[in-house]
Each structure stands twice: as structure tokens, then as C-alpha cells.
Design a protein around this nucleic acid. Structure first.
Ligand SMILES: NC(=O)c1ccc[n+]([C@@H]2O[C@H](COP(=O)([O-])OP(=O)(O)OC[C@H]3O[C@@H](n4cnc5c(N)ncnc54)[C@H](O)[C@@H]3O)[C@@H](O)[C@H]2O)c1
Ligand SMILES: NC(=O)c1ccc[n+]([C@@H]2O[C@H](COP(=O)([O-])OP(=O)(O)OC[C@H]3O[C@@H](n4cnc5c(N)ncnc54)[C@H](O)[C@@H]3O)[C@@H](O)[C@H]2O)c1
Lengths: 220, 220
DNA sequence: AACTCTTTGTGAAATTTTTCACATATAGGT
DNA sequence: ACCTATATGTGAAAAATTTCACAAAGAGTT
């Protein structure tokens, strides 16, 4: 099977959420409808779904149940992955609720901080360890995914530690974009600075999505 | 001048940050060096910088001072833009520190919540109003940019209110991706769910950035 | 002042992503 | 049983983005 692009993965993630929320009641969904609620086009949806090896029926669309099952087995790991988070402050506390709310194939197993006053406490039953124990705990708990939410200045060194200890994916929320040096580690940068700067840039002019929206409307 | 792609804007935002941090001491920077610290390639950097109308010198590179000036005038609005944030909880508190730390061409002027216990308080001197005042305050304070960090279930309705009131850009941090219906409004979705799902997806296999990194290494 | 060597700037090629166009399938009506 | 209208699935075209390849510039060297 062909390599699936990162953008496609993102869209499929969104389709799934639409399926379990807006479309939970429907037996079938049309590519057009899924496109409408995912800021996409029907062709794009069908192209994306091609990767799942899941068939739709002409005039009926896709069985939501089948489609959901295909997406699950495409996106999700077989067995749940262990996740840790470094930096226990406001930001990470908001992440906790995300993990609490949704049953993903991800389980948050520990958090780490350098601040002695936090070490030894626990939030929602998740223990907080000192950052010095990062490496040993990662190995001990078989952690695959690390969330970075420490201070910007320590982001690079903590990520280096994570990688050495065997972590495979890092979601970096700090404002310090990491240097990607290894090809076998996935690093997702949530670049909030760039987000704000883009927002400022586009608020200057008008008609950014114009092309896209015109195209979407055209076919409606 | 040709239209500049969103990806290019993102990269330019990153170049700027590298210029003011890692490169603050240097008089000149080579495209190759900027590429190295921005997970990019030298050609990509030069292509991006072409849009700025700023010239580099063969064998010397780009004057960091000049380059910074060009990027500023490209990215930043002439006069500071006013920003508001809706939803005053852990997440938005972490945003506050981002605004406090960096002097951007953005000023956070107000926040809004539906929770009466928060209304009337203020954080870092920023007042919190009731969400019912959203529209009037946006107009009164001439707000251009809105940050969404309320509960997921209210994201769509709050964003609708923002748009009706005249906001031009929305940065949506909630887990509910908004439906984009207007071409004259820029919406930046920070899709944390997709981020985690991608992290899980790629932690399954190995060698994601392989191609990219191989290419970067090849030319080093 | 000529030469060399490195780096910029950019057409053109390559690659990736999206869109078009249409053959194919089939539900529902008659 | 046949017709029609609507959706899917996908080669092929188009558009967007990235990379290649190399001419031109000019700093440093002899
Ligand atoms: N991407 C986003 O959406 C987003 C939004 C808000 C904030 N942020 C970023 O997230 C990060 C955290 O935000 P915050 O407001 O909670 O920040 P904060 O600075 O208040 O908290 C950082 C925490 O990390 C801990 N820490 C520092 N160095 C450490 C180390 N080496 N090892 C372990 N722990 C360490 C500190 O003790 C503190 O508890 C910041 O980088 C901020 O810029 C990102
Ligand atoms: N993108 C990211 O990086 C990221 C990270 C963490 C959390 N989040 C998301 O950010 C959002 C906020 O996170 P949190 O932990 O602070 O959430 P929270 O649910 O604890 O807080 C939401 C706040 O919004 C207020 N609110 C609810 N409805 C409102 C309305 N209609 N108008 C005004 N205010 C309203 C609530 O009173 C509360 O104060 C959530 O949607 C969460 O999923 C995003």
C-alpha cells in the first residue's frame, strides 16, 4: 500500500471525531457530508478513505460503523501506548483533562518536573516524579510517547533525554521548536508562536481561504 | 508579488525566532546555517527569503539585522493588534505567560468566561468579562484576533459570535474543530487530538522523517 | 589583477497533493 | 425488468511545493 501523507492522517483523525459525534446516529454517511463537516471536499474524502481499504456503496455512502472500524484499525496501535508528560504547570493540567475525557489508545502513566514541591504529588492518580528519574521510568514503564511542556529553555535537553531513553514520538508544546536530528523519531511541534503570528499576518489582509472556500462552494 | 504559502509563513516565523535567539550575536547568517537550525534545507530557506525582497551576499550570507527587519515588516502588522481570549481556565492561564513573556505586535486586552465567579476578576491586569459582553467589547476595543479556549461544546457558538462581532482571525485551541464557512476569516486550528493521534500512529512504525532527513544529511 | 572557491538566486525539473472527469455501481421509482 | 438519478472509485490533469542544477556574484588569496 502507498505511503499515507501526514495531512491525510490528520484528516482521517478528524473524520473519526465527526463520526463519533455528529454522525453517531447515522447508519450511512456520504463523502459529501463528511467533507462538509470537515472543511474538505468530497473527492478529498474519498481519496483519503481509499487508504483504509474500506468500501462505500454508490448512492448510499459509507457505513458509519464499518468506516469507524476501518479508521480505528488504521490509526490506533494494537495495544495501548504509554505516555508521559514533562512539566507540571497550567498547560499540562489542561492536557490532563483531555486525557481524562477521551478514552484513547493512549494512557498517561507519569509526569515529571524539576520542582521539588511537585515531585511526589499526583494528579488524577498520575504520579509526578523528579526529572532525574526520566530515563529509568521511561524504560521501566515502557513509554513510547512523550509530551513536552516544560520551560522553553529546557525543551531541547529534555527531548534529548527522552530519545536516548527510547521514546519514539514527542509532542512538543513548548515555544522552542526542537531540532530534528533523527529519522526514527517522530516529533510533532505545536508551534503556538507561529500560530499567533499567522493569525496576525492574515488578519492584515482578507480572503485567505478564498480559493478553497470558493472551490468547496462551487461543487455544492 | 506572488502569493506566499502558509507553510512559508510558518517557516519565516521560525527563522525570526532563530535570528533573535541562536543568531543574535552573528552579523551574518548563511542559508545553510539557518536551515540546519530550522529543520529545513538551504534552498528552501533561500526560496522562502525571496518573498521578503531581502538580498543576501554570495559567500557572506544574509545580514541578520537586515533580515530581521525584512521579516518584521513582512510578518507584523503596522500597528499592534488587539487580542481576546475566551475561556479562563488552566489552558488560557498558560497562554497568558506566552503573551507576558514576548513582546509581540499583539496585545491581549480582555478575556471572557461564562463562570460568574471569574467575571470581574483580572489576571496580569487583563480584565475578565462575562461572555454576554463579547460582542460589545470586541467592537468597543477594536479587537481583530480571538483565542478560543472555552469548553469544546461551546466552541462553535462562541466563534460564530466572534465573527459576527467583526473578528478577523481565530486561533482555536479547543478539541472541537470549527467549520470554516467564511472566506474572509482566518481560522487556525490547533488540533491537539490529531497531534496525539499522529504521535500514536507514527510511534507504531519507524522511519517517518527518513526521506526528509536523508535528503538534509545528503547535502551536508 | 587574475584566480579560486563558496554561496546566493532562480529557471526548470521532480515530487507531492489536490482536483477533474468519468466509468461503474446501485437504490429507488415506474 | 428497466430506467434514472446519484454516489463511489480512480486514472489522468492540474496545481502546489520542493528539489535540482547552475549561472552570477564577490570574498579572500596569490
Ligand atoms: N503549544 C501550546 O498550545 C502552548 C500553550 C501555552 C503554553 N505553551 C508552552 O508550554 C510550556 C508550559 O507552559 P506553562 O504555562 O505550564 O509553563 P511554566 O513555565 O509555568 O511551567 C513549566 C513547568 O516545567 C517545569 N520544568 C522546567 N524545567 C524542567 C525540566 N528540565 N524538567 C522537568 N520539568 C521542568 C517547571 O518546574 C514548571 O512546573 C511553555 O513552554 C509554554 O510556552 C504551549
Ligand atoms: N490545543 C491545545 O494545545 C490544548 C491543550 C489543552 C487543552 N485544550 C483545550 O482547550 C480548552 C480549554 O482547556 P481547559 O483545560 O482550560 O478547559 P476547561 O474546560 O477546564 O475550561 C474551560 C473554561 O471555559 C469557560 N467556558 C465554557 N463555556 C463558555 C462560554 N460559552 N463562554 C465563555 N467561557 C466559557 C468555562 O467556564 C471554563 O472556565 C478545552 O477545549 C481543551 O480541550 C487545548
Amino acid at each position: 500500500m502507498n505511503k499515507v501523507s501526514e495531512k491525510t492522517i490528520e484528516r482521517i483523525s478528524l473524520y473519526r471525531r465527526r463520526l463519533v459525534s455528529e454522525l453517531a446516529e447515522s447508519d450511512f454517511v456520504l463523502s459529501r457530508h463528511l467533507a462538509d463537516i470537515s472543511n474538505s471536499t468530497d473527492v478529498q474524502v474519498r481519496r483519503d478513505l481509499m487508504h483504509l481499504g474500506c468500501k462505500g456503496a454508490p448512492r448510499k455512502g459509507y457505513s458509519t460503523k464499518e468506516l469507524l472500524k476501518s479508521i480505528n484499525s488504521f490509526l490506533d496501535p494494537i495495544k495501548s501506548k504509554n505516555v508521559i508528560i514533562v512539566g507540571l504547570q497550567n498547560f499540562s493540567r489542561s492536557i490532563f483533562s483531555v486525557f481524562k475525557d477521551r478514552k484513547q489508545k493512549l494512557s498517561l502513566v507519569a509526569c515529571f518536573d524539576i520542582d521539588e514541591s511537585k515531585v511526589g504529588t499526583s494528579i488524577d492518580g498520575i504520579p509526578c516524579y523528579h526529572i532525574d528519574n526520566l530515563s529509568s521510568k521511561i524504560k521501566e514503564m515502557n513509554v513510547n510517547i512523550g509530551i513536552l511542556s516544560c520551560s522553553d529553555s529546557n525543551a531541547q535537553s529534555v527531548s534529548d533525554m527522552m530519545i536516548v531513553a527510547g521514546i519514539k514520538s514527542i509532542v512538543n508544546f513548548t515555544c522552542h521548536p526542537l531540532n530534528i536530528t533523527r529519522s526514527d523519531i517522530y516529533i510533532e511541534q505545536i508551534d503556538i508562536t507561529a500560530a499567533f503570528e499567522k493569525a496576525a499576518y492574515y488578519s492584515k489582509s482578507i480572503l485567505f481561504n478564498a480559493d478553497k472556500i470558493n472551490k468547496i462552494n462551487k461543487i455544492k
